[in-house]
Design a protein around this nucleic acid. Structure first.
Lengths: 128, 128
DNA sequence: CAGCATCCCGCCGGATACTG
DNA sequence: CAGTATCCGGCGGGATGCTG
């Protein structure tokens, strides 16, 4: 198969780690929230309610490592202030990511309906 | 934040399960390979070399449940033949998914370079 | 405020063996 | 060929406690 100049599964082996990062629940949320602009650690914590402090830190470190997010220390001493923002590379990801989010938003209802229907069918066969 | 008519994190809570499915290493590979056309179980196994037989089955079941993939029994008796193909819903996913794959293919080198640079820097600080 | 360290449990997913 | 069943090791990720 061909996607532009890459083949599957050949190059898919290389890009799937990247897709995993994107598909990662927390990473995606962080990137989406940061697409609004730079935010401080505490703000991120509050805006992504469901995330634990540990996973926010882990995710930010991973994104920073990949060059998608950059970290700036605003004030060294109390209270310390750290600001996170998307790098240029990170911003370039927003467009395709948004496209996928829009697909998801558009089809989430349909998928949930299908899922429910499928489960109901399975339930029926179990009895029969 | 706004993505069309959805807000983050409000609706992101609903769509992130969908993104997780997409971001799922195996699901993505299966969808990409099936985008070429219907394939039989054994063919899928061979084309996605790295996948275990267990995960292929699990992934196909999940995709079928969500209405992204459909399963057709071609021959009931020996040798059994089962064909998998994308549903219309599944096909509608290809475009945004391809976009993301292209982004990945385009940026995988850059990301790996940044990662290496970041790790090298960390290595240096560890010693100093 | 912005983290790091530690403990610990659940489940993801590989390996292996068996079936219609 | 196209699966199902079982075992089980590793790690993802929550909870809690401590620091500059």
């Amino acid at each position: 198969m061909k996607l532009g100049n890459m083949s599957v599964p050949g190059d898919c082996a290389r890009i799937s780690p990247i897709l995993s990062r994107v598909g990662d629940k927390w990473a995606t949320l962080v990137i989406l929230v940061l697409s609004e602009g730079p935010k401080r650690y505490g703000v991120l914590r509050r805006e992504i309610e469901s995330i634990s402090q540990r996973m926010l830190t882990v995710t930010l470190r991973a994104l920073e490592r990949d060059g998608l997010v950059s970290r700036r220390v605003l004030a060294e001493k109390n209270p310390p202030q750290v600001e996170y923002s998307l790098t240029e590379l990170g911003e370039s990801l927003i467009e395709p990511l948004f496209a996928l989010c829009q697909w998801s938003a558009l089809n989430v209802d349909e998928i949930e309906r299908r899922r429910a229907a499928h489960d109901a069918r399975a339930e029926g066969e179990e009895v029969g």
